[in-house]
């Protein structure tokens, strides 16, 4: 009996720990808002799924429902043998900072936040560059000369979207008015579609006819309001054009999926590096989505204007102000 038990333990141990150093056990910690928010977290999920499909390697995952679970979840993954853990969202910053110290042999990748530690890779995006392009698109599609922005939680990251968007709108058409609303000051602002809908409606009432939402699942309400009111909406993070074909003008895509797939793949191949990684238009880390669902809404003129602007930004001829650099929107 004892022998059998010992045998079982060996089998369990063999299954739980990597046989060779090259074996990678990835872990993914989502942000609040949930895996299927059709936006930011869903992009992360798709990245991890793509990795799983290519390599056949399963990953550990966790969706926190309150702040206290973040650190617990990271520790539990590390204890269960994960050697590359990706935390999605700026709110994971302090949790990763703490847990990375406790597990110096585990690699951590933090998306959307920056922290310095020898075993942490921080991936940030130049959201302002992508937002600039969709801002141009919004201004060119608007008939009233007024465009709206609905943010989720009021944090510098979301202000960064708003700032780039405003600049892009004014770049395309001087004098375009940009209405900016934030949903709230707490993480629940990512999950309040009725409030998002009301915010969008208030902007339509004030004359806006295109609205860009950077608000997680709250955005679902914004896009619905645009559809109900016969206005145009712009999605964020994932390509959301398919949600309401005909009223989704485009989506500002942020390739969180690529970043996560890369982190896992690099860790597997031993190419993973700690430090800061910034993905912008030049790296195709951000961009705007054009597919069958919004083809009819985007004219050739818009497309070429955006293409030219993209080139100019990459070349440095257009400088898009980064709100997070000085916590102000000066351009």
């Amino acid at each position: 009996m004892r022998k059998l038990f010992a045998g079982l333990v060996v089998v369990a141990w063999a299954a739980a720990t990597p046989a060779t150093a090259a074996d990678v056990v990835p872990g993914l910690l989502f942000d609040m808002g949930g895996k299927f928010d059709k936006s930011f977290n869903e992009a992360a999920y798709q990245g991890a799924e793509a990795f799983k499909k290519k390599t056949g390697i399963e990953y550990l995952e966790f969706e926190p429902t309150n702040e206290a679970q973040r650190e617990q979840a990271l520790r539990r993954m590390a204890r269960r043998g994960a050697n590359i853990i990706v935390g999605v969202g700026f709110s994971q910053t302090s949790a990763i900072e703490t847990v990375a110290k406790e597990y110096p042999d585990v690699k951590f990748t933090l998306i959307d936040g920056v922290t310095e530690a020898p075993n942490v890779q921080s991936v940030v995006f130049k959201e302002h560059e992508g937002s600039f392009l969709v801002g141009m698109l919004a201004a060119m599609a608007s008939k009233t000369g007024k465009v709206g922005f609905v943010g989720g939680m009021d944090i510098p990251l979301i202000r960064k979207f708003a700032c780039g968007y405003e600049q892009g709108a004014k770049h395309a058409k001087d004098g375009t008015e940009v209405l900016v609303n934030m949903t709230g000051n707490t993480p629940s602002a990512w999950n309040d579609p009725t409030k998002g809908g009301e915010l969008a409606r208030s902007q339509f009432d004030r004359g806006a006819d295109v609205v860009f939402a950077a608000a997680g699942a709250t955005g679902v309400g914004v896009y619905q309001a645009a559809k109900d009111g016969g206005k145009l909406a712009i999605g964020v993070d994932s390509n959301q054009n398919h949600l309401h074909p005909g009223t989704m003008l485009s989506s500002m895509v942020k390739r969180v999926d690529v970043a996560i797939e890369e982190a896992f793949t690099d860790a597997m191949n031993g190419e993973w590096k700690s430090g800061l990684k910034v993905l912008g238009l030049a790296e195709d880390g951000v961009g705007w989505a054009l597919d069958d669902n919004n083809r009819a809404l985007v004219s050739a003129e818009m497309e070429s204007a955006l293409g030219a602007a993209r080139k100019a930004i990459v070349a440095g001829d257009i400088e898009v102000a980064d709100y997070s650099a000085g916590n102000s929107c000066d351009y």
Binding site: G34, S188, N191, D192, P193, T194, K195, G197, A217, V220, G221, Q224
Partner: peptide, 12 residues
């Protein structure tokens, strides 16, 4: 009516 589908904790 107000929204178009159920979302977690939507009563807020």
């Amino acid at each position: 009516a107000h929204a178009a589908g159920f979302v977690r904790d939507m009563t807020a």
